[in-house]
C-alpha cells in the first residue's frame, strides 16, 4: 500500500503541470468554440445561478419592502413545514402523482416510438410523427378546458354513458379518479413529444444488426426485443435519470386547474401549496423553504439514480 502511494505522489504533481499546459493549448486551439460558448454561459450565470442568491430568503423573515434584511431565522420555516399538518398529505399527494407518472407516463413514448419505428412507409411515418407533437404545444389551460367540456356531468362522455344505460360518473370532482385523470392528461399531452428522443435513438441502430437477426430467423417482435430495445437502453436510462430529478415536480398549472373543493384531499401538491402560501398569502420565505426542500430531494434523486445506473452497468449522465 505504502509504496503505491509514494509512487502516485510524483505523477500527480507532474500531471498537474502538463494538465495546465494542455488546457491552455486546447483552449487556444479551439478558441472559437470557447467563444461561442460564452453567450450560453452568461445565460446560465445570469438567469440560473445569480437568482439562486434569492434562496437565502428561506432562512429569513423576508418582506418585499425591507428587502433582503438581516432578520435571519435559521431553519424556522423548514421546521414549521416539516412539523406542520400539511407536510404529510402534500408529500403523499405529490409522490402519488409522480410515481404514477413514472410507471405509466414514462413508458408511453417508448412504446409509441417502437410502433412508429415499425412503420415502413416513410411518408406515413413522418405525417404521424408531426401530428402527435401537436398536443405538446397546447397550453394546460386549453387541455383543462377540454377536459372540463368532455368529462363534465353534461359532457360528451357522460351523455354517452347515459345513452348506453350506464351510470354517469363525475370524473372532475371525484377524489379517487383525480390521479388517473392527471396521468391520462399527461399521457395525452406528452407522449408524442416524448417520442423524439427515442426515435432518434432508434434511427441510429445499425441496420446490419437487423439483417443479422433476420438471417437468424427473427421475426418483427424478436427484432424489436433483441435489437431495438437493447440499442436504446442507454437512452432510456438517461431519460429516466432526468425524470427522477423532477419527481416532486408535478407541474403547477395542470394540478391547479384541475383541483377543486372535492378533490383537494389528493390534489394539493408541493407546487400548488407553494403558490397558496407564497403568492396568495405572501409568506415568501416559507414557500421558498418548501421549494428548496423540493430541489434538495430532486438533487438526491438524480445522484442516487445516476449511481444506481452505473452500478447496473450503464454509464449514467455524469
Amino acid at each position: 500500500m505504502k509504496t503505491s502511494q509514494k509512487t502516485e505522489v510524483l505523477p500527480v504533481q507532474y500531471q498537474k503541470k502538463s494538465m495546465g499546459k494542455r488546457l491552455k493549448k486546447a483552449v487556444l486551439m479551439y478558441k472559437w468554440l470557447y467563444i461561442i460558448m460564452i453567450p450560453g454561459l452568461i445565460y446560465y450565470i445570469v438567469f440560473k445561478y445569480a437568482p439562486m442568491w434569492g434562496v437565502l430568503i428561506a432562512f429569513q423573515d423576508y418582506n418585499p419592502y425591507t428587502g433582503f434584511g438581516y432578520s435571519w431565522v435559521g431553519f424556522k420555516h423548514f421546521q414549521q413545514f416539516f412539523t406542520g399538518p400539511k407536510f404529510v398529505p402534500v408529500f403523499i399527494n405529490t409522490l402519488g402523482i409522480s410515481i404514477l407518472n413514472i410507471v405509466l407516463t414514462f413508458p408511453a413514448p417508448i412504446i409509441l416510438s417502437l410502433m412508429i419505428n415499425e412503420l415502413r412507409m416513410q411518408k406515413l411515418k413522418r405525417v404521424v410523427q408531426t401530428c402527435i407533437y401537436i398536443p405538446h404545444f397546447l397550453s394546460w389551460v386549453i387541455v383543462a378546458s377540454l377536459t372540463y367540456t368532455i368529462f363534465s356531468t353534461t359532457g360528451v362522455v357522460n351523455r354517452l354513458f347515459e345513452s348506453l344505460g350506464l351510470e354517469s360518473i363525475d370524473i372532475l370532482t371525484s377524489a379517487s379518479l383525480f390521479r388517473p385523470m392527471i396521468v391520462g392528461q399527461n399521457i395525452w399531452k406528452g407522449t408524442g413529444w416524448g417520442t423524439i428522443v427515442f426515435l432518434a435513438a432508434m434511427a441510429g441502430v445499425d441496420m446490419q444488426l437487423y439483417e443479422a437477426a433476420i438471417v437468424d430467423g427473427a421475426g418483427r417482435f424478436r427484432q424489436m426485443w433483441h435489437v431495438t430495445l437493447p440499442a436504446i437502453r442507454s437512452t432510456v436510462v438517461i431519460m429516466l435519470i432526468l425524470k427522477m430529478g423532477s419527481v416532486l415536480d408535478t407541474g403547477f398549472e395542470q394540478i391547479f386547474l384541475m383541483s377543486n373543493a372535492l378533490n383537494r384531499s389528493v390534489s394539493e401538491t408541493f407546487d400548488t401549496y407553494v403558490y397558496t402560501v407564497g403568492i396568495t398569502q405572501g409568506s415568501f420565505s416559507y414557500s421558498t423553504a418548501v421549494g428548496l426542500f423540493k430541489s434538495v430531494v430532486a438533487i438526491i434523486l438524480i445522484f442516487g439514480s445516476n449511481a444506481l445506473a452505473k452500478k447496473v452497468g450503464e454509464s449514467g449522465i455524469f
Binding site: K86, A261, L262, R264, T276, V277, T280, Q281, G282, S283, Y286
Partner: peptide, 18 residues
C-alpha cells in the same frame, strides 16, 4: 391569519362544499 389565513379559509370553504 396573515400567515395562514388563505389555507384556513380554503379549509372551511372546501368542507362546506363537501
Amino acid at each position: 391569519y396573515n400567515s395562514t389565513g388563505a389555507q384556513l379559509d380554503q379549509m372551511i370553504a372546501d368542507a362546506r362544499i363537501q
